[in-house]
């Protein structure tokens, strides 16, 4: 058989365990053995499910290893990595979990997986010095208001109706500490230096951060947040986000 066609047949049989072995295979006994081809099929599945388990370790703890492998195999069956960069594999896994019927009993699971996906992206993101308070401190409030800040390349903001940051933190060690305070959380995942940090933001800063991450100016974000929450403290919120390293630079606006 022509090379392209025979390799295609091999790949099809590899990906579909219900299909017969591809033509043209043999062994020392003069026949192709199912168990031998199964090694290749198994390598593909085990390699991909293992990659997902490494990236989504808390999700695996939440559902148990057997359930996780089943869910990961269901994902991997139809979604092979689009490139040899396995470090990127599973970017769509959280969305898949959200639509995976057997996982519906754990409504917070997709957001936990989103946090884990963001963690890996932060780990491999471009390095950048965070924007410091010193750059903004000299500005008068009216100058600050027009500024738009560029999020740090590693930063991701996750607004969840579940205590996703607390659940994630509770599963970092071997002993799981129960999450008592079951309420919505906004989580900032960011790597200002070499360590990836996961911060649960103060409740009233969550909307403000989300507006800034969506490209709103400091003034517009502060106004919109104040309209929702008259107790919002603009200065404290901005200092807090800058201290965590949430931004890399001023994207738009002049610093006199």
């Amino acid at each position: 058989m022509e090379f392209t066609a025979s390799q295609h047949a091999f790949a099809q049989a590899l990906l579909h365990a219900d299909q017969p072995l591809p033509p043209g295979l043999t062994g020392a006994r003069g026949t192709a053995d199912e168990a031998r081809f199964a090694v290749y099929r198994n390598n593909v599945h085990v390699g991909l499910t293992r990659a997902l388990a490494q990236r989504f370790g808390v999700s695996e703890k939440l559902v148990g290893p057997d359930f996780f492998v089943g869910m990961a195999r269901a994902y991997a069956q139809d979604r092979k990595p689009s490139s040899p960069l396995i470090i990127d594999y599973g970017d769509e896994f959280p969305d898949f979990i959200a639509g995976f019927a057997p996982a519906r009993a754990l409504p917070y699971l997709p957001d936990v997986a989103r946090l884990e996906a963001a963690w890996t992206r932060a780990y491999h993101a471009a390095d950048a010095a965070p924007l410091t308070l010193a750059v903004l401190a000299p500005l008068a409030p009216e100058d600050l208001a027009t500024l738009i800040l560029r999020p740090h390349p590693s930063a991701a903001l996750l607004r969840s109706p579940h205590p996703v940051g607390s659940i994630w933190a509770a599963h970092q060690g071997t002993d799981v500490t129960p999450v008592d305070d079951w309420r919505p959380e906004t989580v900032l995942v960011v790597r200002p230096e070499m360590a990836v940090n996961v911060h649960v933001l103060p409740v009233r800063d969550g909307l403000f951060a989300a507006l800034l991450f969506a490209g709103g100016s400091l003034g517009a974000a502060a106004e919109a947040t104040l309209a929702e929450d008259p107790g919002f403290d603009f200065g404290a919120a901005l200092v807090g986000l800058l201290t965590l390293g949430a931004f890399a630079a001023i994207a738009q606006g002049d610093v006199p």
Partner: peptide, 11 residues
């Protein structure tokens, strides 16, 4: 690698 993506094994 194949049309369907990266197969993550040395075939």
């Amino acid at each position: 690698t194949h049309d369907t993506g990266f197969l993550n094994d040395l075939l």
